[in-house]
Write a protein that binds this DNA or RNA. Structure first.
Lengths: 350, 350
DNA sequence: CTGAAAGCGCTAACAA
DNA sequence: TTGTTAGCGCTTTCAG
């Protein structure tokens, strides 16, 4: 109705003046504190609504000594499915605790630090971080101040903190085992950065399984397959070897899709088996349907959030760091069950 | 090194005391303001680092009258690809403006309001909202206070504000036209909520094209196909009709994947054409590859962010509402080019 | 039931 | 170059 001067938002002062009460009484009403007569409380509420009052949580949190009822999440935007499920899990728990979840996404590992520190400066009550940078020692001050924080997917480096991860080694082992059991002797691996712990652990599981079966492995591992194109190229290179692998193990989502692309593109005389780490929406719709190792990312989010809130609520022996390792599961859909040297059927259509 | 008492984070006061300077000088140094001798500045920086000082941005923003250098984004977690690209576009622009992008995701339309208002109470400088609720009039107070806000994907209801949307009608029209041009006379449509403007507009485009071609349309539209399962069922129902459609138009991502599932599952004697609204990662890997209508979601994010910042920076004639409509593009991959009554080729493999 | 005063951590305005 | 004072909007004593 009335044209306010210029983006000045009403304060409790304004409401109090309009109602003819003290600012404190207004505060009480607006926070549902007892000790204000029904009639006056009603009036305050009405006026607050008329004025479009929104409590300034900056001021409130400042006064409340850094309780912002907010937890910050920092993720690098890459494997989308991972992010989605993670947030879903976190949200579920945070909602129960009445906290707002604020996510900052970073497009590159370099920006991780600034995003995290920005959140810290805004005094979030806790931090859930999917580390993408090489080193998290920049969080030492927060650790010293006992800010609750949990690292998800990979452990932090340069600092000790709670961690929630999948059992990547076991997942890599299971995938490889699955292929070996079907007779594969040459299994190619496509991964992004060998420096990322998730990647290196999945590869370790692969190597363990190969060693146990008495197979060579190292010469069939291709790192630095970045993006779908990179993964596709790495696969094509593997498939072009004089003595090519009969099966592939893609260490993440993006690599898997790149591999599918490579396999569909190449005119191969033999079908090549494929197992991918991490599930994706259309995995069962591809031809052949893609066998994957899944991790329960939503559960990772839930566990991470629970860890945060138990620290926030100051659960007893708070100083010990906890590392939660969640199991992985193999979902057989077809691509991982292809046997070595199985001839390719005729293509559909044209 | 030293064990702080209990999660009390150091303030400028602490730094000042340690250095033997006034709090104001510390403030100057920490904000890169001029007027402090090189030597003392150096000392301040060192001590601040030792203490693990992080400026309290709650206090800073409070003092600075609601400039938090933060913009809030509210999305409902549903079509993941949409969200990802949107944030990427927003981040790009926000980074140029030195602002932090904080995203609150809601798992249901009902929580949209509380997430938005929580952000508003935290005094973000601007709000980018992908509305999922039916009514946004709860934002009247923010509008009155001239808080910069932009609605993306759908316009707001109950309030007038800047909007960035795709040309959904044109997209729906193009998809339908494309099918009609290939001889289809019965085109089925699968959508979620007819109350969502995106959905209804895409359907309008469909109807326009049908009418122009003199085709009946209404009896082949199926609403309330929620989730992949719902979409799949709706498709199966359409395909089971006595006089089934020869082509399908899926109004969003999820519907498209559900449709693919239905088409793969059904043992049809004739191939059915399919066009989906909105692209997805593996669309070109499916069999047949899926023809889609794409919208440039990243650009939507960029435009939205630019609109926000131009309001924040108080660009002149600020009071007019702007509606940006971005074009859509049809990407032909195969599924949309199938002609009516084309027999199904033999399936690969088993 | 109601209110006055103090202060959370910071910065702008104004001295010195 | 440096420091003092006041106050952002709120909540917590502690009095009326």
């Amino acid at each position: 109705m009335d044209e306010r001067r210029l983006s000045t938002r009403p304060t409790m002062r304004d409401v109090a003046d309009r109602v003819g009460l003290s600012i404190k009484s207004v505060s009480r009403v607006l926070n549902g504190d007892p000790g204000v007569s029904e009639a006056k409380a009603e009036h305050v509420l009405t006026v607050a609504r008329e004025l479009g009052f929104r409590r300034n949580d900056l001021a409130r949190s400042l006064r409340l000594q850094d309780r912002t009822e907010t937890i910050g999440v920092v993720v690098r935007q890459a494997s989308t499915r991972f992010y989605d499920s993670l947030i879903r899990g976190i949200d579920e728990v945070a909602a129960r605790h009445g906290a707002l979840v604020l996510t900052a996404t970073t497009q590159s590992a370099e920006r991780e630090q600034s995003a995290v520190l920005a959140l810290s400066s805004r005094r979030v009550d806790g931090l859930i971080i999917v580390p993408s940078g090489e080193d998290q020692s920049y969080l030492r001050a927060e650790a010293a101040a006992r800010m609750p924080m949990v690292f998800v997917d990979r452990p932090a480096r340069g600092i000790s903190a709670d961690t929630v991860v999948a059992d990547n080694v076991a997942g890599g082992y299971a995938a490889t085992q699955h292929l070996i059991a079907r007779g594969h002797q040459r299994i190619g691996v496509i991964g992004t950065r060998s420096s990322a712990s998730t990647m290196s652990e999945r590869a370790r599981g692969y190597r363990d399984a190969c060693r146990e079966a008495g197979l060579a492995s190292e010469d069939l591992v291709r790192w630095n397959a970045h993006g779908q194109e990179g993964a596709q190229q790495a696969c094509e290179e593997l498939l072009g070897l004089a003595h090519p692998p009969t099966a592939l193990f893609a260490l993440n989502n993006v690599c898997t899709i790149g591999a599918v692309r490579a396999l569909q593109g190449a005119q191969l005389s033999r079908q090549v088996a494929l197992i991918g780490f991490d599930d994706f929406d259309t995995a069962d719709l591809l031809n052949p349907p893609v066998t994957v190792i899944t991790q329960d990312v939503e559960e990772m989010g839930r566990r991470a959030a629970e860890a945060i809130f138990s620290r926030i609520d100051g659960r007893p022996t708070t100083s010990r760091r906890e590392k939660t390792v969640l199991p992985t599961t193999l979902i057989a859909r077809g691509s991982g069950e292809i046997e070595p040297d199985r001839p390719v059927a005729r293509r559909i259509g044209a």
